[in-house]
Design a protein around this nucleic acid. Structure first.
Lengths: 254, 254
DNA sequence: CCATCTTTGTGCACGCGTTCACAAAGACAT
DNA sequence: ATGTCTTTGTGAACGCGTGCACAAAGATGG
């Protein structure tokens, strides 16, 4: 997973648990694949395997949407695709803007997974005047000055921030002021937004750090098993080790 | 959050809850910023605000690492940076390979957040022969044929997959066979890996779909509040119907 | 129409994560 | 030393999410 999320006041949206909502896109993808192969029905067991989850969990997830299955048979693929799409709001068109057209922004603009699911890149915005007019993924980049007008004219409610960390909050503020109520943030910053605005965060380096943690753990366990234990899995005498300034990796800008 | 995660056998690594591990990079980032401003100490309240979490949660998180704070004062910034870095395994060098140098792969290669945290891009690998030798982010792209040798020679244990969906599983298999035990997957596919291998998934379109769900809900609520409901929350009923929408509590994440 | 077989939908229990609330610990002033 | 003030560290309660296990529902065949 990436990261994402902000505080979740624990209020279950319309009775559908947040955890379930997060899995619906997963099911949808698996179902779409089945649909393309013209598979008419699928059992919870099969679909769960395809989506990489437990079948009981899948059935419970679907139960929040309603009883769309047929006992003894399974689920109708087409029907389920429709129901989940509707539930996720993918039956309508969602214009999105991407702000910050660097390497990542360009990659996002070119990403095919958006258009295929009801998301339409309405505009690309960058602060660099030199970028203005230059087409990326077939869409001309526009200057930040026109941000508000672009949002309003296109009725954009979802914004993607792919700017450097420093520019993220100001851009976020402007997006929100212009009417955006959902933000996908790729900048390594904690954005503060007013109530009613959703923010999800994707942080590439955080994912790697989590992997590193587990990787280190594996390595530690291994050597501990050898008894030699070059890196004690748990050693922790803050008095002995320590080294407030010792090495410490580099680190980052905000 | 983004996505990420795969099976978590509920085995708490070394007593540190998975949820806590996922937040450590967040704290680290906030602490680093403080460190650069030469702030000597910070209270749980201040740091929590900077990281965007609850202060009680932060204190509990830190309590899993040990008692690194001073009551009445707070936490020593430098010391905490060191401790968290060490805990996450960032005090050592982690060579990573990125497979699939398309738009996204290139963006990742150029991403500064890696190098600064102990991650070193050891190699870029792509299946397109035309890419071979071409430098991306200053690193020459190598051909997939040499994947195994690259992994072995560099002692790589973390791999990043940024290939098209179809190529992901084969690439994953080869990475694992060559010795990689942690994978960050950007391809929209469920990877199957043997036990002992960690997989985290980042899926851009899933994040947007989750936002769309909440966005739709907001829109539905709004029109429902007007009672007139010019735009029914969901409408559409195929044959049967469904649609006990209407009210819905309220409250949203931020 | 009845028996059997398959698969859903869910009641229930359990465990993790979050949050509250407060005692304990230390800093600091007198 | 003693008292006051601040902030940590954590016991305990609570709620959400997960997974088991099974009854109910429907398909299918005789």
């Amino acid at each position: 997973m990436a990261t994402g999320r902000t505080h979740r006041p624990a209020t279950r949206s319309r009775g559908i648990p947040e955890a379930t909502v997060a899995r619906l896109p997963l099911y949808l993808r698996a179902l779409t694949a089945l649909s393309e192969r013209s598979v008419p029905t699928v059992s919870s067991e099969e679909l769960a395997a395809a989506a990489g989850v437990n079948s009981a969990k899948l059935r419970k997830d679907f139960s929040y949407l309603g009883s769309y299955g047929t006992r003894g048979v399974g689920y109708d693929v087409e029907y389920l695709v429709y129901q989940i799409s509707r539930e996720l709001g993918l039956t309508q068109d969602w214009p999105v803007v991407i702000v910050g057209i660097g390497n990542l922004g360009a990659a996002l603009a070119n990403y095919g997974g958006f258009a295929s699911r009801g998301f339409r890149v309405a505009a690309l915005i960058d602060a660099d005047p030199a970028m203005a007019g230059k087409p990326v993924a077939g869409i001309p980049v526009q200057h930040t000055d026109d941000l508000e007008k672009i949002i309003t004219d296109n009725g954009v409610s979802i914004g993607v921030i792919a700017t450097p960390a420093g520019a993220a909050q100001p851009v976020c503020d402007r997006l929100v002021a212009a009417g955006v109520t959902s933000i996908l943030n790729f900048a390594p910053t904690v954005l503060s937004v007013p109530d009613g605005v959703d923010v999800r965060k994707v942080d590439l380096s955080i994912e790697l750090q989590i992997l590193a943690f587990h990787e280190q753990r594996k390595a530690g366990e291994e050597s501990a098993a050898h008894e030699g234990a070059a890196v004690p899995p748990v050693a922790h005498d803050e008095t002995t080790d320590q080294g407030p300034d010792g090495d410490v990796p580099a680190v980052m800008p905000a």
